[in-house]
Simulated assay, not measured.
Amino acid sequence: MDITPLVPHLAPLLHSLYQSTPDYFQLLGSRIPNLSEVQADVNTAFADPRRHMELLHDEHGQLVGSLDYKMGYPQAGDVTINLLLIRQDRQNQHLGREAVQQLEARLPPGTRRVLASVLGDNPRGARFWERLGYTFELDARPSMVWYAKRLGMPLALPPQLGNIATD
C-alpha cells in the first residue's frame, strides 16, 4: 500500500472517496460532505502540525482509502486515529488492517498508545479494531466508543522473578 500525505490541493480526491462510501455516512446518519466542506477540513488539518491526513493507494495506484490521525493527542505519547475509511467496493480485502499496521510500524519512539474511535452503532467497526489487538477503552455513546492499543509496554515479571535482585 502506498501512502500519500493529503495536502489541500488533493481534497477533491478525498471527496471522491467519501462519495464512494455512502454506507459509512448512512451509518452515521449524516450526508456525504460536499467538496467545500472537505476542503475546509483538509485546510484545518493541514494547519495543525500534529494532525495527519493520508490517502491510501493500492499497488496499481488506485485510491482505496484514507487515514486521518493526530499525534500527541489526547496526551503526549498517544496517537488518535480519527478516521480510517476504505472505499466501499474495496472493503474486506485487508486494506484497513494493512493501513493500521503500516501506521503502527512508523510511529515515533515513545508512542505508548493508539486510540481509535468507532462512530455510531457500528459492531463491525468494533470487531475490526478488536481483531487488530485494540481493546475497549471508553464508552462515549451515543456518538462513539473508543478502543486503545498499548505499545511498547514492558512485560510485568512474575512475582517470584521480580525480587531476584533482592534475594
Rank of each mutant, 00 (worst) to 15 (best):
I3L: 12
I3C: 10
A11C: 07
A11I: 04
L14K: 00
Y18W: 04
Y18V: 02
S20A: 15
S20Q: 01
S20R: 01
S20W: 00
Y24A: 00
R31F: 05
I32R: 01
I32V: 15
L35P: 00
E37P: 02
D41N: 09
T44H: 09
A45Y: 03
H52W: 07
E54P: 02
H60M: 09
L63P: 02
V64A: 13
V64M: 15
G65Y: 07
K70H: 13
K70Y: 05
M71G: 04
D78H: 15
L83A: 03
I86L: 05
Q88K: 04
N92Y: 13
R97G: 11
Q102A: 09
A105R: 13
R106N: 15
L107N: 01
L107F: 03
P108Y: 04
G110A: 11
R112S: 15
R112K: 15
L115N: 09
A116H: 08
D121I: 10
P123Q: 10
P123S: 09
P123T: 12
P123K: 11
G125T: 05
G125H: 03
E130P: 06
R131D: 12
L132C: 05
L132H: 05
T135W: 08
E137K: 12
A140D: 15
A140I: 08
A140K: 14
R141L: 08
P142G: 10
R150N: 09
R150L: 12
P154W: 04
P154G: 06
L155T: 14
L157P: 02
Q160T: 08
L161P: 00
L161M: 10
G162A: 15
G162S: 15
G162I: 00
A165C: 08
A165E: 13
